[in-house]
Design a protein around this nucleic acid. Structure first.
Lengths: 257, 257
DNA sequence: ACGGAAGCGTCCGCGTTGTGGACGGAGGGA
DNA sequence: TCCCTCCGTCCACAACGCGGACGCTTCCGT
């Protein structure tokens, strides 16, 4: 979200983007006008206007009975066209499924999108107790959750410094996300090769992640696992870490060809 | 595209929608600024500004070397979220494939989007000469091509009248698309149950289509076949029509549950 | 039943912000 | 070299997006 763009028209587009993202995040139930207004921090009439205009163009849809706004068909259509360029999920799916099979936990593919990660794929494992902190479409800032930490940890040092200087994660994500603690966890992630989220978002919901690199060597995606604390014991973590790294490495190789 | 909306903000959103659709239509190669400006009939600087703002938000991407604008990752991400609500292609795929197998022609699923159809699925058959007039993402006005004619033909009489009164298809699609000729072809389509495009868009490229109905009984999709003229002989058409109607009917039933 | 809170959608005067003609630069072809 | 086409940028101006206020509806608690 660029707050200081010099491009005329960028304010409107930025607002539309925020509104669409809020709607997207609230799928499949959708959101009310006021909920979206709170999320995007804009006056309700403004949000209502934007949503109405988006609905006229098919980018949103309005369930009048429930008063909920949803993504519209136009988003789906364009998304399908864009998939040809952006979709690595067909390649990654077998890895996500293999991770879920081997560990019994829920396995994920997340992608870096600027300063955030967004979950693209989820495959549940055989263990019947599952964490739903992460799911398709869910976004977290870099450094939050195992996927975001894995990606952040393998950015260039300058990029890490810039990100940490410009983002304060404590308010929304707790003291465990202050800069000093994050730096320690970055060091640990680089040492192990995999990241650990020891219940820092929701108590009892643990996760591990490994970065997947794009052809230019930048961490652009992450494979991760989530589950309950007892399934992420210190004895089990090295094995899970090895599995994650193996699949992340194989996926990275596939994406370079 | 609503030209007389009373919603403030609708002009801007409408312009953005047109620009995004133009980019989407030009995928996977993308388009130059001036190409999009011509398609959407807006001044080039305006288009450049809109595209730049959309690119800042991730809805478009700019290949600086080639000067081409493409759909951005945000469209893909939201599209994947919206797919949960709008995607019937997984259900329809087996029908499209079965049609291609049985006939040897290219088979399609198209969806109605307001006054247009858009192609969602394409499956090529075994016959090695194929028409590429229709492909995923391609849009035609209702009444044009076999899919659009199939859907238009089974709308309510009032809706057909309104559409024909408000749209002149002759300029872009030829004299064969004047109102009187379209009405005759609508009568024929209703009689047979399937529509025929006898090389009216590109000479030698023929097509047949059948409407698929949504739970409220409205024609919302179409299954169609395209190929070369010699493959759509008068002797073969009843059999192909029967196949189309059978699959359209089965798909319609699946969509009602 | 009544009152309050919360949310809904709409309105319209105002001023913020989007607009596009003009400009200079780049690239390609004759 | 000249011409054509396209590129991205600029900034004065007014078009159009904005949002406080309004009236209405629904839900909940007393």
């Amino acid at each position: 979200m660029n707050m200081s763009s010099s491009i005329p028209g960028a304010q409107m587009v930025g607002r539309l983007a925020k509104v669409l993202r809020a709607v997207s995040t609230s799928m499949p139930e959708g959101s009310s006008t006021i909920q979206i207004a709170r999320v995007v921090d804009l006056p309700r009439p403004t949000v209502h206007r934007l949503l109405s205009a988006l609905t006229e163009e098919g980018f949103c849809d309005h369930d009048h009975r429930k008063g909920l706004w949803l993504l519209g068909p136009e988003v789906y259509l364009m998304g399908a066209v864009a998939a040809e360029r952006y979709d690595i999920t067909s390649i990654a799916r077998q890895h996500v499924e293999a991770l879920a099979d081997a560990t019994g936990e829920s396995a994920f593919l997340s992608a870096r999108r600027g300063d955030e990660t967004v979950c693209l794929l989820r495959q549940d494992g055989s263990f019947p107790i599952r964490s739903f902190v992460l799911y398709e479409g869910k976004r977290f800032p870099l450094g939050v959750a195992s996927a975001g930490l894995a990606i952040l940890s393998f950015l260039d040092g300058d990029a890490i410094d810039r990100y940490l200087a410009n983002h304060s994660l404590v308010v929304e994500h707790g003291e465990s996300h202050d800069v000093d603690t994050l730096r320690q966890r970055i060091v640990q992630t680089r040492t192990h090769g995999w990241s650990l989220n020891p219940g820092l978002i929701v108590e009892g919901s643990w996760g591990m992640g490994a970065a997947v690199f794009d052809p230019s060597g930048q961490p652009a995606w992450s494979l991760s696992l989530t589950g309950i604390e007892s399934r992420f014991s210190a004895a089990r973590r090295p094995e899970m870490g090895r599995l994650l790294l193996r699949h992340a490495h194989e996926l990275t190789k596939k994406l370079c060809h």
